[in-house]
């Protein structure tokens, strides 16, 4: 079991993805999807060795809903900023000190920051302890950092139990 199906969740996602792609659930495509779901994780195993595991699925679902809400609200906010007078924008670079240490959760946090309220993650310090974030309109950098840490980093710490 462990040897032939090292990442059951990934295999399930791959099979479901294949069926969604071809758009039919015939025997032939079920077999082909199953074959891909078996083969791809085996081939990709060396890259997947150091994955973190979700220990708090409830927190992950909560974060997902928070994200959907934030992405929609953020887009409306950014639309107003973009269409409003440009001289009023106060762009800023801020450094966010990280409590997360695992590359996987740092990558997730950086992606979340890029997808949400007027912020883009621009760079990671070589020691992986600080994230450089650019904000489109930021009046109070200290508050922005506190918001990012409270809203997104805290749930990630909880989800991966570190």
């Amino acid at each position: 079991m462990k040897r032939w199906l090292p990442f059951p969740l990934l295999s399930a996602v791959l099979a479901a993805g294949w069926l969604a792609l071809v758009g039919e659930a015939s025997i032939a495509h079920l077999l082909l999807g199953g074959l891909l779901a078996l083969a791809i994780p085996l081939v990709a195993a060396p890259f997947l060795d150091h994955l973190q595991h979700v220990v708090a699925p409830g927190a992950a679902v909560r974060l997902l809903f928070l994200l959907i809400r934030d992405i929609v609200l953020a887009n409306i906010a950014v639309a107003r900023l973009v269409l409003g007078p440009e001289a009023r924008l106060r762009p800023a670079f801020v450094s966010v000190p990280l409590a997360l240490s695992h590359p996987q959760s740092i990558a997730l946090l950086a992606s979340i920051i890029t997808m949400t309220p007027g912020t883009v993650s621009a760079d990671l310090a070589p020691d992986r302890r600080t994230l450089l974030v650019h904000a489109l309109d930021c009046a109070d950098p200290a508050r922005l950092v506190a918001d990012i840490k409270r809203r997104y980093e805290q749930p990630l710490l909880e989800i991966f139990g570190c």
Binding site: N75, V82, P91, G118, V120, A122, H134
Partner: peptide, 11 residues
């Protein structure tokens, strides 16, 4: 550039 990066990635 950094300000321009915001609009396309999200909107």
């Amino acid at each position: 550039f950094f300000m321009r990066l915001h609009a396309p990635t999200k909107a």
